[in-house]
Design a protein around this nucleic acid. Structure first.
Lengths: 168, 168
DNA sequence: TTAAACTTTCAATATTTATTGAAAGTTTAA
DNA sequence: TTAAACTTTCAATAAATATTGAAAGTTTAA
C-alpha cells in the first residue's frame, strides 16, 4: 500500500469510528489528520487535505480545541494560526474521558439521584420495579464514574498492567 | 415528583444518553421502558407508551434483540409476542461491551495492523510520523480490547473492587 | 488610520438518519 | 383450508444533523 492510500484509509477509519461514538465525522477526520502530521497545519491545509469548506474546518478545529485535543500554535513571522494535536494517546484518552464524564456521566448521575425520590408506594409493582432499576443503575453509573476517576489519576502503565496481568 | 413524571424523565434521560453514545434515541427509550417494566410488554404497549409507530417499535425491538438486551417471551394462551429486558445492569454492560468490541474495536484493530505495512521511507517525516501514530494507536486500542476481555471474564464485584480500592 | 490578511459566524442548503403507515408476509385456531 | 391476528418490510416522508460560502468581524503591518 502506498503512503497516500494508507493516510486516506487512516482518516476514513478514524472518521467512521468517531461517528459510531457520537462524534461528528469531520471532527474525527480533522483530528486524524492532525494526529499524523509531523508539523502544525493551518485551516487551509485542513480544508485542502479533507476537501471541506472553510467554515467547516474552522468549526471542527474550534471543537477540537474545546475538547483540549488540539491547540493553536504561533509561528513567528506568520499571521496564520497553526494547529497541533496532542500526540500522546493515553493523554488523549484521559482528556476524552474527563470531558465525557463531566458532560454525560455526571448529569445522568444527578437525574438518577433525583428520580429515586419520587412519590410511590411499595405495593404498586410498577413503582417497585422503577425504584429498583433506578437504584441499580445509579449504583452502576456511580461505579463507572469512580472508575473513570481512577483512570484519570493513574498513569498508563499502572492502569493497564493492573487490568492485563489478570488475563492469562 | 409523581411516578408518571419520574417515568417520563427516566425514559427521556436514557434516550438522551443513548444518542450521545451513537445509539438511536428511540431504541434507548424502548430499552428504558422495558427496563422499568415489571411485566413483559407487547409491541402495542411500546407504541402507546412512547407514541411511536408500529414499524418503529418493531424495528427497535428487533435491534434490541440483536444486541441481546431484550428477548421475546411467550404468554400461554396469547398469540401476541411479549418482550422483556435483561434487568441485571452488569450483564447489560457486558453484553454491550461484547457487541461494541466485536463491531467496532476489532475492525479498527485490523485496519491499524494493515496500515503499518505501507511502503514508506524513514527519511520522510510524514511517513515517520504516520508510522509512529499508527503504531501507538494500535498498541493502545489493543490494550483496550484486552481490557474489555478482562471485563467480560470477570464478575462485577471483582472488577469494580479491583479498580475502586485504589481510589482513596 | 487603513487596507490586507486572516478568522468567525450563520442563514441557506445538502446530507444523513429516523419514522411512518400501509401493504405484504406469517402464524394459528377452528 | 381460510380468515383473523399478528409481525415485518420498505418506499415515502419527516426530522435531525452537518456543511457550505459569503458576509461580518478581527487583527496586524505599515
Amino acid at each position: 500500500m502506498k503512503f497516500e492510500e494508507a493516510k486516506k484509509q487512516f482518516i476514513q477509519t478514524w472518521g467512521t469510528l468517531g461517528s459510531e461514538w457520537g462524534i461528528n465525522r469531520s471532527m474525527a477526520q480533522v483530528h486524524a489528520l492532525l494526529l499524523i502530521s509531523p508539523k502544525p497545519l493551518t485551516t487551509e491545509d485542513v480544508m485542502e487535505d479533507l476537501s471541506i469548506s472553510r467554515g467547516n474546518a474552522n468549526m471542527n478545529l474550534r471543537d477540537l480545541i474545546n475538547w483540549t485535543l488540539v491547540s493553536k500554535e504561533l509561528v513567528p513571522g506568520d499571521r496564520k494560526e497553526y494547529f497541533v494535536a496532542e500526540k500522546d494517546i493515553w493523554e488523549i484518552a484521559r482528556r476524552i474521558a474527563k470531558e465525557r464524564k463531566r458532560r454525560e456521566i455526571e448529569p445522568v448521575l444527578k437525574v438518577l439521584g433525583q428520580l429515586n425520590e419520587f412519590e410511590g408506594s411499595k405495593e404498586n409493582p410498577e413503582h417497585a420495579a422503577f425504584s429498583k432499576t433506578v437504584a441499580n443503575l445509579g449504583d452502576f453509573v456511580g461505579k463507572m464514574d469512580k472508575s473513570v476517576e481512577v483512570m484519570l489519576k493513574a498513569d498508563e502503565s499502572w492502569f493497564f498492567s493492573t487490568l492485563l496481568k489478570l488475563l492469562k
